[in-house]
Amino acid sequence: MAENLLTLSGVHTHIGPYHILQGVDLAVPEGGVTVLLGRNGAGKTTTLRTIMGLWTASQGGIRFGDHVITKLSTPEISRRGIALVPEDMGIFTDLTVAENMILAAANGPMDPKRLAWIKELFPPIGNFWNSSAGTLSGGQKQMLSVARAIIEPRRLILIDEPTKGLAPAIIKAMTDALKELKETDTTILLVEQNFAMASSIGDTVAVMDDGRIIHSGRMDELVADVALQEKLMGLSLEAHQ
């Protein structure tokens, strides 16, 4: 396995009076897709937000590449090459699709080649280029959110439940796009509840419960081991299939 791009060791995060992450140890290998699974409230979203610096870890360390990023501010973390596609998509609905993309290219004008590739990946981006982002449908907003994250080359993309509440056809489109993105040397840390989707693109997997990682390993091993699936996630996975 390749060297780890991102390593969390013993990360604790408090939000107000609540102790959400209680010692998360997570390694994300360079290249490929790591899937973070777990039931609602297990701390998946908090893990992503802590990596991004939107919450600060009260204990433990986060290493990205050769640097420790635990105490860096969100913009600094972003500029080191991590992008976030949040659960609520974080679309600026008051702005047009084009304006959303312009802001996403924080380091200057957009690379036309990259933009063309994105428009090919997600046709609605091109189709609604000058429309207000607030008028997009849920699936289109999700595409825009991912498009923003990849308009500049990134080393790591954190994606929080990209298929939540989407129609099956759009889930398929999103899965295809992520598969194509995987081919471009970008590392993805994906939070997903949909096990079918997760197992189709994941290379490694980590399972969370109660603010800790309770299992990590190769995705194909987990897929093959139904007993382990049951043990880790019980019936909750079945419900999503």
Binding site: M52, L54, S73, T74, P75, S78, R79, A83, L84, P86, G90, F92, T93, D94, L95, E99, N100, L103, A104, A106, N107, R148
Partner: peptide, 14 residues
């Protein structure tokens, strides 16, 4: 304008 709507996301974009 983006910051008024969602300051956190603006930060996440760098």
């Amino acid at each position: 304008r983006a910051g008024v709507e969602n300051g956190e996301m603006v930060e996440a974009l760098g």
